[in-house]
Amino acid sequence: MKAPSPDITLRYIKPFVFVLCLLPAVFLCGQALMDQLGANPVETILHSTGEWALRLLLLTLCVTPLRRGWRWHGLIRLRRMLGLYAFFYAVLHLCVWVVFEHFFDVHALLNDILKHPYIMVGMAAFLLMLPLAITSNQYMLKRLGGAQWQQLHRLVYLVAIAAVIHFWWKMKLDISEPLIYAVILGILLMLRHPAIAKRYG
């Protein structure tokens, strides 16, 4: 099957994906209003926003392999949007933690970060995302110059690794879910290895 053309990707697929990515947030709001978030609604929102941030981050990392392997060059027009959506869900995730876990209690927040390694790693992932989100626009790309911008945006690999570790360390016992994400991330990183990338790129 041939990959969609850049024109179709930009004109139809991009708006469609935009709406699709917004749906988890819309559903959460709807469920909250109808009291359908289960016995522990805050936990449901916290977990859901965190998982969507991770999923979108991994989807962002799918762009390059798909572009090369399937020659779907138009896909690059979706990458920034996917990355920003990952950031959007990460911000929600962080806000739920700041507001509903600790209600802006700075001491409790710092304590949580310093005493609990999984929180520290999660915070690191978020902080590393900040410069990427800030420099995601066309203006900053031009200011930094292509090469430097690309160099900076390699941080996304660290973000993804930290995010998976954050999820992994959070688990008490059953690590099956973080394991799935770890495997997917492993594959996505492997596909970037020069030896492998050369074969399909």
Partner: peptide, 15 residues
């Protein structure tokens, strides 16, 4: 090591 125990979320009632 995972959770600060200073506070708790009482489940029940509405969202």
């Amino acid at each position: 090591p995972r959770w600060s125990q200073a506070k708790e979320r009482r489940l029940g009632g509405s969202f």
